[in-house]
Design a protein around this nucleic acid. Structure first.
Lengths: 138, 138
DNA sequence: CATATTTATCATATTATCATGATAAAAGCA
DNA sequence: TGCTTTTATCATGATAATATGATAAATATG
């Protein structure tokens, strides 16, 4: 798939948190159950998001995770970046270290437009954008 | 990166063969040297391409690999498909088994356009298309 | 303070991808 | 036929991604 499994979990978890945003944090167990995702693994993933400033975590009773950023200010790229996605993917299709208009691989001319669209999708789409189209379960 | 390492090797090897198309087959050793790629691994990858009908292989003295398809009829998707790329990647961004206009995930509305561009790039771009922009090494 | 709850972290297992090395099988050619 | 060259295949190892299970640390609350 396009995203790593971990990146996909991260995205879905954040969307779940956005949909269930309230005063109180949501626990990993609930999210894992809702998304049908391994709980311990998700726990580690959410912790990475917390360290990245995307989520806020609180421990102890009635603890859990919450969004730390307003949905309309939270781009998908920011959610995925701790898991090494996106910016890597804009790279040269043929794996060259440098590939630009000046020093182009065979694919560059045709690929760059697609790559830029892909990149800007993740940079510009926010969680709020997705909440709108989201009448259905994540 | 967007392609698997193996997929990238495959693409580069095919482009190399297209650029060095002649009467005589090209040996793995030469391709591996030119692309700076592990020879035994490339050998296996080229064999997969041969089984997929993309390349023709001949053994023995003055054997090697050749394109089995005319460059202008050889889409990138066909080169990559033995390595499980592309069609997987068009799938739902959030990993849903079914995700369509009728049953859409939260991302579907915004994602489908990008996904379609990505998919059609690989389906419609041919080796011949890339040979043109390719004055520089692969 | 004691306890229950929850995240944080560690140790380890599983799986897929990437890679290496060795050998078998085919094919040309002296 | 026998030798050399080359692909085909097998066995194995290395590494990273994914996942599981157990324990530690923090915190609210009685």
């Amino acid at each position: 798939m396009l995203l790593s499994q971990t990146g996909e979990y991260a995205l879905r978890a954040v969307l779940y948190l956005a949909a269930h945003a309230g005063e109180r944090p949501v626990q990993v167990a609930e999210i894992a159950r809702a998304l049908d995702v391994p709980q311990n693994y998700l726990s580690k993933t959410l912790h990475q998001l917390a360290r990245a400033g995307v989520l806020a975590s609180t421990r102890g009773k009635s603890g859990g995770f919450q969004l730390a950023v307003a949905p309309d200010r939270l781009a998908l790229a920011r959610i995925l970046s701790p898991f090494g996605d996106i910016e890597d993917r804009r790279r040269c299709l043929l794996g060259r270290a440098v590939c630009s208009d000046r020093s182009a691989c065979a694919a560059h001319g045709r690929w760059k437009e697609v790559a830029e669209q892909l990149s800007s999708f993740f940079r510009e789409t926010t969680v709020a954008d997705l909440q709108q189209g989201a009448a259905l379960p994540v």
